[in-house]
Nucleic acid binder design. Structure first.
Lengths: 242, 242
DNA sequence: CGACCTTTTGAGTGGCGTCAACATGTGTGG
DNA sequence: CCACACATGTTGACGCCACTCAAAAGGTCG
């Protein structure tokens, strides 16, 4: 059904039947209104690994639901330093940080081949005025993002390297598990350098810590394939008292 | 006009005449709708230095505009570690991070005697469906917060101590200046420890850096009174190439 | 005036960054 | 399919920045 590279027109209703709805826009929205959301989300986009969804400073045209695949968001300092500010999984909505002035403040890049639903933002804003439950969910997603970043600030501000990495692994495990994947065995879609950037560490430190965790019997790791062996020990490291 | 301690009923229209509106809710809202906003923001609250506006886990009743004074927001890890995630000045709206599940994820504490406008959130949500420009501004404020935290993550993730402190001073200077105060001379309302927590540093490090900045002739500092002498040098430190 | 909190400053330590060498994996073109 | 180039990951040696511990000065408030 692909008419041109990367663009896929969609004929059938989608949000209303999407199994990822629980993480995305269609939460708590009654069936009749769901159809209007379907009409709004009329296109998808495919990205190959490494492709850019939007650049920092691009105009906001749409927000995007991740149908499959995963992405990272990066911000850049005036002097060129880069910081990964988030990893985004299947079902998550990205681009909401652009609402402020209708320009994206971050760059979004695919970590693997991915497919996204395109929700044109202007229409979404209009529809959310008419559908209170949609408005509610939009607000929920935005403020959830604020909340996540509070947690990340807490990690960067107060935790040591091994604690940060433990938090990272457990967070990823939990999110994958919520999507029906194994909580104990998964593939990291990002490099050591990207993990390091996200956690405020250098890639060598991340690599060393993985090795140490493996030596302590907390995880098994071969390249990007991770197996969590002793989740309790990770939780303890992460600062959750058993 | 105070009827009971800390609560002040307000008879006259306020948002419509408030000089701080540019940082708060009433941006771009036509006059007739502004009156409806006035009706919604019908109460104020006074806080003494150190008093709590809301605790983490409190129900969301309202969001708050800062009429005068300043506050900090803190999050707490399961093991008790605290992180200051933001400082809030005159005119700013706080409490928006609670929209997700109608519970506050952070604790807000007054850094000095302060007065806040109370905007009951349920009514605000309703009104914002009817007044597109209000909806717009709410979205703008939420996503501005996401953007600010991206910048803070960048600072904590990639910058050294002196760079973080330079960024902090310049950011404060800019915000105060936008409120009509001097950009070069101001009073820090927060302790070295609170600055340290915000920047992921220990209070001793903050103190040492202030001393060093003063020795280098970049600032003058006596207690919490700061004077920026060489803003260009601070900008350079902060990573903005001259 | 005394109790307490905040800030400053010093000395010593260690966690993480830097630099470097090497191993392993991945993709591409002949 | 192999050879090669290049990206990614591992590991070691070393150094520095920021933390820890400690003591004392200065400021604030009852």
């Amino acid at each position: 059904m692909t008419t041109e590279i990367g663009r896929i027109p969609v004929a059938q209703p989608r949000c209303s039947t999407c199994s990822l709805g629980q993480f995305c826009l269609p939460v708590g929205i009654p069936a009749p209104e769901l159809e209007r959301l379907d009409a709004l989300v009329s296109e998808r986009r495919r990205l190959k690994k490494g492709e850019v969804l939007y650049h920092a400073n691009d105009d906001l045209h749409a927000v995007y639901g991740i149908r499959f695949g995963s992405l990272k968001s990066c911000v850049t300092a005036p002097d060129g330093r880069e910081q990964v500010v988030g990893f985004h999984l299947q079902g998550e909505l990205i681009g909401l940080d652009a609402v402020a002035d209708h320009h994206h403040p971050s760059t979004a890049i695919a970590l693997e081949d991915s497919e996204l639903c395109i929700a044109r933002f202007g229409e979404l804003e209009t529809l959310s005025r008419q559908v209170p439950s949609l408005q509610r969910q939009l607000h929920r997603l935005m403020s959830q993002e604020i909340r996540n970043e509070h947690q990340q600030l807490l990690a960067l501000g107060t935790m040591r390297a091994e604690e940060r990495l433990a938090v990272f692994l457990l967070n990823l495990s939990e999110r994958l598990s919520a999507r029906g994947y194994s909580a104990n065995e998964f593939v990291l879609r990002m490099s050591r350098e990207e993990i390091g950037s996200f956690l405020g560490l250098k890639l060598e430190t991340v690599s060393r810590l993985f090795s140490r965790f493996a030596q302590n019997g907390m995880i098994e790791i071969r390249q990007r394939h991770v197996k969590i062996v002793d989740a309790a020990a990770l939780h303890e490291l992460a600062g959750v008292p058993c």
